[in-house]
């Protein structure tokens, strides 16, 4: 997560990128491994579960019934074989077939991924807008405004998504009827779920940014900009903000992963389609190929997001840039 000190030669940079990719890959293989073996530790007999889910009855099953399912899903093979088979498949983007839907997991996830990614990205964008506006307005404006500003930051950051979501739903959808109660995938259905994720995130980013912002306000380059006659807002947006948002950028890479998992809660509250909904349903019904597929996918996202953050960091941070050139 921390930016590595850049080297000057292209060869060194290439090596560094290779190293990062290697790390990313090993993390992913590790994630697949952990997720796969976690599912084998699940209680009960998997073939029984598959049959019962399909029948909606919780009963024991006869050996003949079980044998058929075991054979169909290759559950009687040695675990190591199942694992290797799975790993090779996963690297090709094949996560097996859902026990319940008979369909490739990759296809199921593919269908649902879009809605969740849109939700997560929208939430991050809204969080940034809220955060930038709020911090620019309230940071470094004397103790009283600052106190209110940071109180709001801290409170917003402490709001649990599951509670905030229900309150927003209750007030704006059920009470005032401003938004649909069944989110769906349209823009109107996106507002409340995205806000639910964005508000705590904004508060959280604002905490990190505010400190930096106040520190940057006292920097020489700010004073010189003011002396050149630049207006307060101009200075804040043009110079201070650029310096103050560095920690927030780092945190955003992490936030993408966290927001994707926050989507689990939010999608369930707002009846919104997405991988969160699929995941909860799958956990509830032990449709393990789906659970593992989603877990691996989110981990991959996290790894990717952090690679991107490393890159963004080098672009935004003038000090690092200076060092590199």
């Amino acid at each position: 997560m921390t930016p590595t000190s850049p080297s000057s030669t292209p060869r060194a940079i290439a090596l560094q990128v290779l190293h990062k990719l290697g790390t990313a890959l090993s993390v992913l293989i590790g994630a697949v491994t952990v997720a796969f073996f976690a599912q084998t530790a699940l209680p009960g007999n998997r073939a029984t579960a598959i049959l019962n889910i399909r029948a909606g009855q919780a009963v024991q099953r006869t050996p003949e019934e079980l044998a058929q399912i075991n054979q169909q899903y290759g559950l009687e093979r040695p675990l190591v074989v199942q694992y290797l088979d799975y790993l090779v498949g996963a690297l090709r983007g094949d996560f097996g077939h859902s026990y319940q839907q008979y369909r490739p997991v990759a296809e199921i996830i593919g269908e649902q991924l879009g809605a969740t990614v849109v939700l997560a990205l929208t939430a991050i964008v809204i969080a940034w807008i809220l955060m930038v506006v709020w911090v620019t307005l309230t940071a470094g404006r004397g103790p009283r405004v600052g106190a209110i500003g940071s109180l709001v930051d801290v409170t917003a950051a402490a709001l649990p998504a599951y509670w905030l979501g229900i309150i927003l739903l209750l007030v704006f959808a059920l009470g005032l009827r401003l938004f649909p109660v069944i989110g769906g995938t349209g823009p109107a259905g996106l507002v409340l779920p995205a806000l639910t994720l964005a508000i705590p995130l904004a508060g959280f980013l604002a905490q990190a940014t505010r400190t930096e912002f106040e520190r940057a306000l006292d920097q020489p380059f700010v004073i010189s900009a003011r002396m050149r006659g630049q207006g307060d807002l101009g200075v804040r947006l043009g110079h201070v903000l650029r310096h103050a948002i560095l920690p927030a950028i780092t945190l955003t890479g992490w936030a993408l992963g966290a927001t994707l998992s926050g989507a689990v809660v939010v999608e369930s509250i707002f009846s919104r389609p997405g991988i969160g909904q699929v995941l909860v349903t799958a956990v509830n019904s032990q449709d393990l190929p789906i659970v593992v597929g989603i877990v691996v996918l989110i981990s991959a996202f996290y790894v990717l997001a952090n690679l991107l953050v490393d890159i963004a960091y080098t672009i935004v941070d003038p000090r690092l840039k200076g060092a590199a050139s």
Partner: peptide, 12 residues
Amino acid sequence: AFPALLLALLLI
């Protein structure tokens, strides 16, 4: 790399 909620879900 596992979001905490997912780790918790797996364990549960």
